[in-house]
Design a protein around this nucleic acid. Structure first.
Lengths: 149, 149
DNA sequence: TCGTATGGTTTCAATTTGAAACCATCGTCT
DNA sequence: AGACGATGGTTTCAAATTGAAACCATACGA
């Protein structure tokens, strides 16, 4: 499962997470988990992927501490898969992915699901990246800086 | 390259983008492009991946309109690969990935590159998702709603 | 006790990946 | 002109991954 590390011996801040969730299915499983799915069968039905693959992906998510198994919930003798704190940390990544999809993968008039604020029922705003002083910044306004400097 | 569609005939707002950039390398190429890399050889050296794979990934990024080739820049007879508007739209997704990585993939004292505001030189804030009324909202505060409702 | 629902593992063919070798074009040096 | 290196790929082929289907195991209810 662990892909080869990049030619540098230490993986950068983007590559390292990709090793954990860098495949098609894992993120979809996490998204379904955010939507409340918990059971092996639920994930399989929702995603329509082969059971062996789902099994492998869940194992990988468990190994990376993104999900964990909990013994039961409704009394059934099975275990359930739930997001850990680390897994819940993927929320904004999923939102970013969804918003990018809305921007570029749907026709303007094409219907698609909306992420809405529970309290108001209104759609959420776009994700915003701000500088310390509160300015919204984009790619042009930022750069990466090496550790020590 | 096009993976099988989920069991539903129409891919959801998260799955559709994943079809375009849902593999390990593509996002790393895009990240390098944000860092100013443009040439085939630069990407290959930076990422250390096989040339045939890089070739296939670039072709895929071009096909999805995430990158495009431009004839030249410094007069050399080669083409260069640059991000399109759609590609630049991935900025916040990369930031989300990076911030998640910082949160969970590095020891607290482990050095890592920082994304800083060019103007001030200070690290940027965390990505924020807000409701219409300006409240910062998390996963618990949101839900997805079907198109028409 | 038989059937069924759930949650997997095993098997095996097909696809994808990736390392290495090869090829093509351009510019330069002699 | 001819040799040569740099750049940007494609081809080849073995190894790893994927995925569909079959199989297995356990719990439960009729």
């Amino acid at each position: 499962m662990a892909k080869r590390v990049s030619h540098r011996d230490s993986m950068c801040g983007v590559a390292r997470p990709l090793d954990a969730i860098g495949d098609w299915w894992s993120l979809l499983i996490v998204r379904d988990a955010f939507d409340g799915l918990r059971r092996f069968g639920e994930f399989q039905k929702s995603l329509g992927l082969a059971k062996n693959i789902l099994s492998a992906r869940l194992r990988n998510l468990l190994a990376h501490g993104i999900m964990e198994t909990v013994p039961a919930a409704d009394g059934s003798p099975y275990q359930e898969y739930v997001l850990t704190e680390k897994g819940r940390g993927l929320f904004r990544l999923l939102v970013a992915l969804r918003q990018w999809g809305e921007d570029f993968f749907f026709e303007p008039d094409e219907a698609h699901v909306l992420l809405v604020d529970r309290k108001s029922g209104l759609p959420v705003r776009r994700l915003e990246l701000r500088a310390q002083d509160g300015r919204v910044v984009g790619a042009e306004d930022t750069m990466v800086r090496l550790p020590s400097a």
